[in-house]
Design a protein around this nucleic acid. Structure first.
Lengths: 194, 194
DNA sequence: TTCTTTGTGGAGTGATTAGTCAATCTAAAT
DNA sequence: ATTTAGATTGACTAATCACTCCACAAAGAA
C-alpha cells in the first residue's frame, strides 16, 4: 500500500517534471537526465517507469488529453439547448486552459510537432465524435449554420485556441467576465444561424 | 557573376533542404549533417553560411515570413472597400499555404515551438501593423464588428489557420471555388457588423 | 527467516551531434 | 603570372544524450 503510493508518487513526479521542462524547452532539448533531476529521481528510475523517452512523451500527452476531455465536457449533456451546451463547453475549455496553462501549451506544442505518432491520431479521433455529434444536433435544429460538420469543428477549435492565446498575452482580461462574455458572443455569432 | 549565383545557389539549397527536413522531423531531430547531405553540400559549407544551427533556423523563419507577407498582401491596398481588401487577403493567404505547404507547416511549427527567440517576437510585430490598420479602418467605417483590434486579429488569424489545415486534410476541396467561397463568407460573417 | 518481486540508484556505454580546422580549390584583380 | 579573398571540403573533437546494467533496498509471501 505505502509502496504503491510512493510508486505512483514518483511516476507522477516524473510526468510533472517532464511537462514543466518540455513546455519551456521542447522535447528534444530536454534530456531525460534533466527530467530525472527535476523530479528528484535517479536516471534509471525514469526508465523503470517508461521504457523510452518517446513512451514518456506519449503517456504525458494521452493523460493530459484525457483529463482535458473529462473536464471540459463535464455537465454539457445536461444543458437544455444547443447554445447553453456550446457556452458551457466554451467556458470549460477557456477556464481549463487558464487554470492549467502548462497543459494547454503542452498539447498545442505536441499537436503541432512532427513528432506525432499514429497513436496520437487514434487518440484524437476517440474524442472527436462528441463534438461532431453536438454540431450535427445544432444543424438539425437549425440553430447552427449549415456548413460541413468537420469544417465547423476545425474552425471553432482554432477560434478557441485563438482566444486562449490572446488571454495568455493579456492577463488583465482573464477574470474579466464582461470581456469573456463578449468573446463568447463573438464565437457564438460566428457559428449560429442568423 | 557565375560564382555569385553558384554561391547563392548553395545557400538557397541549404535553406530548402533544411525546411524539407524540419517539416518532416522537427528541428532537433534533424542533424546539420543531414541537412548538408540533403543539400549535396559538405558539412563545413553549412557552417560557412550559418554560424550556428539556430541561426539557420531563424534565417529560414525570417525569410519565409517575409515572403509570406509580400505575397499575401500584394494588391490589397488597391482594393476599393474593406470587404474586398479582406477577401483578397484571405484568398492570398489560403492560396499561399496551398501552393507552399512546406512554408506554412514550417511557420506553424516554428511559432508553436518553445524555440522562439526574441528576434522572432520583433519580427512578428514588424508586419502586424498592417493587419491592425486594416481592422481599424473597418471598425471606423462601421463595416467590422466593434471588438478590440488585437483580439480580432488573433481570432481571424487562427480562423484562417483552421481553414488551411482543413484544406490540407481535404484535398478534394482545394480547387473547389464554391467551397472556398463558402468558407470565406463564413469568415466574413464572423467579423462583419450585421 | 528465506524467497521473490518490485523499486531505486547512479556510474557507465556506445552512438550521435554541433561545430572546428587546416588544407585545397576557384575565380577575379593586378 | 601572381596574388588575394572567399568558397568548399571532410576528417576530427568535445560534449551530450538515451538507455543499460548491476548492485542493493524494501516489503510482502512462503
Amino acid at each position: 500500500m505505502i509502496s504503491q503510493s510512493k510508486l505512483e508518487n514518483k511516476r507522477e513526479r516524473i510526468l510533472l517534471a517532464a511537462r514543466r521542462l518540455f513546455v519551456n524547452q521542447g522535447f528534444h532539448s530536454t534530456p531525460t537526465s534533466a527530467i530525472a533531476r527535476e523530479a528528484s529521481v535517479a536516471n534509471g528510475t525514469l526508465f523503470h517507469y517508461f521504457n523510452t523517452k518517446e513512451e514518456l512523451i506519449n503517456t504525458l500527452y494521452k493523460e493530459t488529453k484525457r483529463s482535458f476531455f473529462t473536464i471540459t465536457t463535464a455537465g454539457v449533456e445536461n444543458e437544455k439547448n444547443i447554445k447553453r451546451k456550446v457556452r458551457l463547453l466554451w467556458y470549460n475549455t477557456v477556464k481549463w486552459a487558464l487554470n492549467r496553462p502548462q497543459d494547454f501549451l503542452f498539447i498545442q506544442q505536441y499537436s503541432n510537432s512532427p513528432f506525432i505518432s499514429q497513436l496520437t491520431q487514434e487518440d484524437i479521433s476517440e474524442h472527436i465524435g462528441f463534438y461532431h455529434d453536438l454540431i450535427d444536433q445544432g444543424k438539425e435544429k437549425g440553430t447552427l449554420k449549415d456548413i460541413p460538420t468537420d469544417l465547423m469543428y476545425q474552425l471553432t477549435t482554432y477560434q478557441i485556441y485563438g482566444i486562449i492565446n490572446y488571454l495568455f498575452q493579456h492577463k488583465e482580461f482573464q477574470n474579466n467576465s464582461t470581456y469573456l462574455s463578449m468573446a463568447f458572443e463573438f464565437y457564438w455569432e460566428s457559428i449560429a444561424k442568423k
